[in-house]
């Protein structure tokens, strides 16, 4: 009942004079180039988007050399920046549920990759650099779908999009630094290797949950 009331409240506040509140409300009120605000929104989206964070945890779970971390994070960034800008300009409407379900599967994929499942099952290791780039491309379509929903003003769109993208990278760096510090503490303990198997299983479960949740949303919509 409490949830129901909450839903009604949100519904009304979103549609009172058809003016949205929050980030979306703000975006619909402004006009022209707003570099720092869009940078902020990009960073906020990344830091508060647990699907992107889970994938990053998977990617850097076994990486400890800064050089490797740099390479993988850059590949991921190249992937999602390209599809973000391309998706918005080509106005590609991929169903948000489908793209988020694929993002969930990317978490599952990475967890299995960490566990060495592909070597066991298929006797080969898919190129981790290429797969990181490909999943980056999918994550970018997710970001693009989000931006299209924001209904940004065409005036100054490209500059605002670039700002959003810069923000996404900043947010990613911030999230990554926090994850890295936590994992580094843990990596020094003997329990890291003991529990890395079960941790990746948990990561996989979370990935499946994200996927399942999005598929339910898709079939209910």
């Amino acid at each position: 009942m409490k949830n129901l009331l909450f839903f009604i409240f949100i519904h009304v506040s979103l549609f009172a004079h058809g003016v949205a509140t929050g980030d979306q409300g703000y975006i619909q009120q402004i006009n022209g180039i707003n570099f720092v605000p869009f940078m902020y929104l990009g960073a906020k989206h990344m830091v508060t988007g647990y699907d992107h964070i889970l994938f990053l945890v998977g990617v850097i779970f076994f990486l400890y050399r800064l050089r490797d971390i740099g390479i993988y994070v850059t590949l991921f960034a190249i992937g999602h920046s390209s599809t973000l800008i391309f998706g918005v300009f080509a106005d590609i409407h991929i169903n948000a549920y489908i793209i988020d379900a694929i993002i969930g599967l990317s978490v599952v994929y990475k967890a299995l990759d960490n566990l060495g499942a592909y070597q066991q099952w298929f006797g080969m290791q898919p190129n981790t650099k290429i797969t990181t780039l490909i999943f980056g491309l999918f994550h970018g379509f997710g970001l693009a779908t989000k931006i299209i929903e924001f209904d940004m003003d065409p005036n100054g769109l490209l500059t605002n999009l670039i700002a959003f993208n810069v923000g996404v990278e900043i947010g990613q760096l911030l999230a990554l630094s926090a994850i890295l510090i936590l994992i580094s503490y843990w990596r020094k303990q003997p329990s890291f290797i003991t529990y890395s198997y079960s941790t990746n299983i948990v990561l996989m479960i979370l990935g499946f949950m994200l996927t399942g949740n999005q598929l339910i949303g898709y079939f209910n919509s």
């Binding site: 409240f9 009304v12 506040s13 009172a16 003016v19 409300g25 703000y26 009120q29 707003n34 605000p37």
Partner: peptide
């Protein structure tokens, strides 16, 4: 300076208006 206060101000005024609207309705 960064133009972020305007964002917060707009968000707060939108929220206030939507709450007023709700009680008016």
């Amino acid at each position: 300076l960064l133009g972020l206060k305007e964002m917060g101000d707009i968000k707060m005024s939108l929220l206030e208006e939507s709450q007023n609207e709700l009680s008016q309705e």
